[in-house]
Design a protein around this nucleic acid. Sequence first.
DNA 1: ATGGTTGTGCGACAA
Length: 284
Amino acid sequence: MPAKDPLPYVAARVPARAAGTLRIVTWNINSVRLRIDLLKKLAKDSDADVICLQETKATNDVFPAQAIEAFGYPHQHYQGDKGYNGVAILSRVPLADHGRRLWAGREDSRHVEATLPGGIELHCLYVPAGGDVPDAKANPKFAHKLEFLDHMAEYWGGADARAKRVLVGDLNVAPFETDVWSHKQLLDVVSHTPPETTRFAKILACHGWIDATRQLYPEPQPIYTWWSYRNRDWRASDRGRRLDHVWVTKPLGSRVRGIYVMKGARDWPQGSDHVPVVLDLATA
DNA sequence: ATGGTTGTGCGACAA
């Protein structure tokens, strides 16, 4: 018997969705209009019930809603900005209670939420990347990112942790040592600096969030969901980071049936630099 | 390698 591979990575298609499970996929698509055909492929390959997107880079008037409905996702809730940001929840099951929140005092499109059948509250979030310099005084984008993370702790700290709640998205933080290819070399690189990782831990703790990926695949197993475009051979250099996250509240912790990181999607022609992450959740 | 690549939209930015 070969050793069991503990990685959540899948090269091609994810396992068939089991009866009685809801499949939610999150993907930083880096332009929904450029990658509409890859979105269709993701829908087909993953058999997702719900797809959450970040960095759609499309205002609502140009969002490809009809094309997405045509391949099976008529229930949609999206919010976009011109050229940047943009988030979407696309579903083949009905959505209720559509909402969005503004974070860190900005009007940008970084969050949408909706309620799924069974009363599961789903949040799709895109945390600011934070620029290049990890100094809040010298770099306003980093200051904005820290403020955004502080706001998350404040908001979730005041929310009812007994709710059935899922949060997915590109959180732009690789919180643990084995969430990056080199902990030492990235301690000073935005996404893995102590001001970010300590805030990340605080947000998880203040709401009793469960990091579903790490619940199933604990440290020190390295897990990455993003590999930079700026590498000749992303797979050979493997300088990845885990920036895309799946969180659930405690009432859903025992319902997590699977997590899959669709690593093969990094090789899709003209693909995103992020790969989709799949959550299988038992419906009861 | 104070590099490198990609997307938006047509010049810088953001990532």
